[in-house]
Design a protein around this nucleic acid. Structure first.
Length: 856
RNA sequence: GGGCCUGUAGCUCAGUUGGUUAGAGCGCCACGCUUACACCGUGGAUGUCGGGGGUUCGAGUCCCUCCGGGCUCACCA
């Protein structure tokens, strides 16, 4: 039953009130039976980004999730069956780090499980984060804490999304660490493996020494770091020297060659000869390679294994040996690399062993200075250095065995297929496709998916051990798909028993887990229950819409396209809606490290969800939005609009109305014609994912409706029953009905509140308004606009006289086109003009206004 | 250095296929508690459309060039 119209409508409390009712009524539930009946074309499936559970949601999330919700709500109103799940990305490094800080613990996989373990602290966000202050615990204890904390975090996230009014079906929630997700991720991996798309390689790998894990190209970030050029002498056999410049003199023991440009006349004579490294006297060749830049440093560089990614290229293309000297912890290894053999050299190396890169460099500079091999003073510079985006120490490059998935970097056929899939996706805005294409075109290595971490989806393989107890990596043992998910570090390999673990002739389990993106790239498959529920899967895949921020095109968007191409050979969605990001008043991107992040809960509490949604909806896809938490202008405007909707509707519903009364008065007809045009534009805009234009058009006419039309006709609407009175009220009520539905995606709470005053069901399952339900046709006569202009004149005259707008007018004249006569009575009424004279003219003007001074 | 986006009123932004005097909201100034709304209403002022050049009868809109801002990739000896 429709509810009573409150005395004083307010926004406060609407979120909780209607949120509960929507949940109870299943307003947003995926109607599977209907989808089955109507077929896949009736389904609008949204592939939603799972936010990092252990991170915090910020205002930028609200921004892009609202954009996604607007599209879903529009499609729902248009009769689509909406599949709108929500997921949480809870596996991975961010969770581990948060658990470490929150509980003051650290995972040490060598420790046994302690069933009675209680963490030393809870909620200690302010701790040092230093390993020394953390209690080492077993992997199983650690994973338990991860589970515990993410469940808590996810509850808070869901609360926030519900408050914001996302029309998600909360029965479709998924977690990337759940058994189902693990099964999906492992199944997809095994199929990649079977097709040869997943493989292992023992190769130089970008390595984070803090987290002690490999990282992928997509996770790199450059940071400007101070450094210094050191000019160092290498010794020619004839006693002369060749001077190189390096920022990493500590890597001299790892030097395998010098390299200069083949065109460089200065070094041409030395190509093919050898020199000896300073201090250690290791003999290394002088080689030519086009990547060496003539004008950089001294034009000749030392190649170490490995100082940077260029070293890797040289090492590979020049077939050089490996002389590693840094361990997984970023410290100089105790055993010197090959070539450092004599006691003297080894003693020198021992001075560096165990030191961090920083300390080793300092000691090396002292040693080089003593030996006279350092020419002049080091010259300080700042230069970009590669970091793991979540790390705070520069990456090192170490050689390790890792798992990769081919991504087109080394396979032109795959690369062109991925580009083709990109063309098949409708990007909104369209230019965002270029970012995808740039990324695909610029890939220079396959996707490294193994991580030496603990809280993630295990890579589902084991390795047999040979007679000496060495793993046979190229003969991995894989589980059957119906055994998934598996944890090779705690379960025996198929065909083996637990006591064969680690013994010659037995097996070992892979200990690595997958990169988070290797799971979240499968969100369509996880939410659509690929391989588990064929009926559902066929209804939702490929999805209709992927909605996300522009910052994760290279990671999430790309990896999703890749997995869909490898497994299904299609683009995973028809549309990709890309939201811009939020910048602070100084136009700086909001990010945690800059400390300018705004948490959304306070904004929602203070201004109301509709207001915050209005702010998000008023920005087009792909454009960045400025946001000043101290003065959230757009939010305040949205709040004003929502309040206006409540009040205007309440006012309209206060007039006596006759059911089925026809709209006959020219002004009423003209308002409805204008409204029909608004419906046309708004619908067209939403269809093109241009919610901002739909909102702007609707909002603008809504204000004309309340400020001009409603003012013009309210006197008539108050009168006793008559065809003119009934016409006004019929037009008013019809307009409100249409406005509410046009605004419902943006203001789901205020519009629902009003809708239920006169309707039984939810506005959010009501059909989208069409021009067919507006009982007038033809283009606007312009009458409403003319009246609006005349109104401004009348009001201006009163303002000029410093009189109240209600001051009666004895007489006045309005000039304008003859059409104005059709609204003469309304004009006279709104201006309280006793004697109104109309004079025909091209220009609308108001003159000779005589105020009734006796009316005090 | 490459690619993409962007520069319109003090602020945030609209400006459709080039077409009269360039728009909105906020803010500002003035006025008004007008039988829905003071979480309000009414009126008003405000711009070399980043600079320069070109195409055109006509350019905020198209082309070239320069300058500024942002994102991104690359470079990293």
């Amino acid at each position: 039953m429709p509810s009573d119209i409150p005395e004083k409508p307010a926004l406060e409390g609407l979120e909780a009130h209607w949120g509960d009712i929507w949940e109870r009524e299943g307003t947003y539930a995926f109607d599977r039976a209907r989808a089955v009946e109507l077929g896949k074309d009736s389904v609008f499936a949204v592939d939603t980004p799972p936010p990092t559970a252990s991170g915090s949601l910020h205002i930028g999330h609200v921004f892009s999730y609202t954009h996604m919700d607007l599209a879903a709500r529009f499609q729902r109103a248009n009769g689509k069956v909406i599949f709108y799940p929500m997921g949480w990305d809870d596996n991975g490094l961010p969770t581990e780090r948060r658990v470490q800080n929150y509980y003051g613990v650290r995972c040490d996989p060598t420790l046994p499980y302690d069933a009675s373990f209680t963490p030393p602290q809870e909620g200690g966000e302010g701790t040092s984060g230093k390993a020394a202050d953390q209690v080492p615990i077993s992997r199983r204890n650690f994973v338990e804490l991860c589970e515990r904390l993410t469940v808590e975090d996810e509850k808070k996230f869901e609360e926030l999304w519900r408050t914001l009014g996302l029309s998600v079906d909360w029965a479709q929630t998924y977690r990337t660490i759940s058994d189902e997700s693990q099964r999906t991720a492992q199944r997809a991996f095994l199929r990649n493996l079977a097709r040869g798309e997943a493989y292992q390689a023992d190769a130089p790998t970008l390595w984070d020494i803090t987290f002690r894990t490999a990282v992928a190209q997509a996770e790199l970030e450059d940071k400007e770091m101070p450094g210094a050029y050191h000019r160092v002498s290498f010794h020619k056999p004839d006693g002369g020297t060749i001077d190189i410049e390096t920022t990493r003199p500590e890597l001299i023991p790892a030097c395998v060659a010098l390299v200069a440009n083949p065109e460089d006349e200065r070094y041409k004579p030395y190509f093919g000869t050898t020199v000896r490294t300073p201090l250690f006297g290791v003999e290394v060749p002088v080689l030519a390679h086009p990547l060496a830049q003539i004008d950089k440093g001294s034009g000749i560089a030392m190649i170490c294994t490995f100082g940077d990614v260029t070293d890797v290229v040289w090492w590979r293309e020049l077939s050089l040996p490996t002389r590693p000297m840094l361990g997984f912890d970023g410290r100089v290894m105790s055993e010197p690399p090959a070539g450092i053999d004599s006691d003297e050299q080894r003693a020198l190396y021992a001075e560096l062993a165990g030191k961090t890169v920083f300390s080793a460099k300092a000691r090396m500079v002292e040693l080089l200075t003593e030996s006279g091999d350092l020419i002049g003073e080091p010259r300080p510079i700042t230069h970009p250095v590669k970091f793991f985006e979540k790390g705070d120490k520069p990456l090192e490059i170490v050689t390790t065995r890792q798992w990769y998935i081919s991504n087109g970097a080394k396979d032109e056929d795959l690369r062109s297929r991925l580009l083709q899939r990109g063309e098949q996706v409708d990007f909104h805005p369209d230019f965002m496709r270029v970012r995808y294409e740039n990324w695909v075109s610029g890939l220079n290595g396959d996707w490294l998916i193994s991580r030496q971490r603990f809280f993630g989806v295990p890579i589902p393989v084991w390795y047999p051990l040979d007679g000496d107890g060495n793993p046979v990596f190229d003969k991995p043992i894989v589980p059957a798909e119906d055994q998934l998910p598996v944890d090779p570090s705690s379960q025996p390999a198929p065909g083996y028993t637990d006591d064969q673990r680690g013994v010659p002739g037995g097996f070992v389990g892979e200990v690595d887990v997958m990169d988070t993106w290797a799971t979240s790239s499968l969100t369509p498959q996880i939410a659509g229950k690929w391989g588990e529920d064929d009926e559902l899967w066929n209804l939702v895949f490929p999805y209709s819409l992927r909605s996300q921020g522009q910052d994760i095109i290279r990671t999430w968007l790309f990896s999703t396209v890749l997995r869909a191409e490898l497994e299904h050979g299609v683009a995973p969605w028809a549309h990709a809606g890309i939201s811009g990001f939020i910048v602070d008043p100084d136009r700086k991107k909001m990010s945690k490290s800059k400390g300018n992040v705004v948490t959304p809960q306070g904004m929602l509490d203070e201004h109301g969800s509709d207001a915050v949604r209005y702010w998000a909806a008023s920005s087009r896809l792909g454009t960045d939005a400025a946001f000043d938490p101290e003065n959230p202008k757009q939010i305040k405007i949205g709040r004003r609009l929502a309040i206006k909707v409540l009040n205007a509707a309440k006012f309209v519903y206060s007039f006596a109305h006759t059911d089925g009364a026809p709209v006959t008065e020219p002004l009423d007809v003209d308002m409805l014609r204008r409204l029909a045009e608004v419906v046309r534009v708004a619908t067209d805009s939403y269809e093109q994912f241009d919610h901002a234009r739909a909102l702007e058009t609707t909002e603008q006419f809504f204000w004309t409706f309340t400020d001009d039309y409603l003012e013009l006709v309210k006197e008539r609407a108050y009168r006793d029953a008559s065809p003119e009175q009934a016409s006004a009220v019929a037009a008013l009520r019809l307009a409100i009905d249409v406005f509410l539905r046009l605004l419902a995606p943006v203001l789901p709470f205020a519009t629902e509140e009003v809708w239920r005053w006169t309707h039984d069901g939810s506005i959010h399952v009501a059909p989208w308004p069409t021009v067919n339900e507006i009982p007038v046709s033809g283009a606007s006569s312009g009458l409403l606009d003319l009246c609006g202009t005349a109104l401004i004149g009348i009001r201006g005259a009163k303002t000029e006289a410093k009189a109240s707008q209600k001051t009666p007018v004895t007489s006045g004249t309005v000039t304008g086109p003859a059409l104005l006569a059709e609204a003469k009575d309304d004009l006279a009424a709104v201006g309280r003009i006793a004697e109104l004279t109309l004079v025909e003219s091209d220009e609308v003007a108001v003159r000779d206004i005589v105020l009734d001074e006796t009316a005090e």
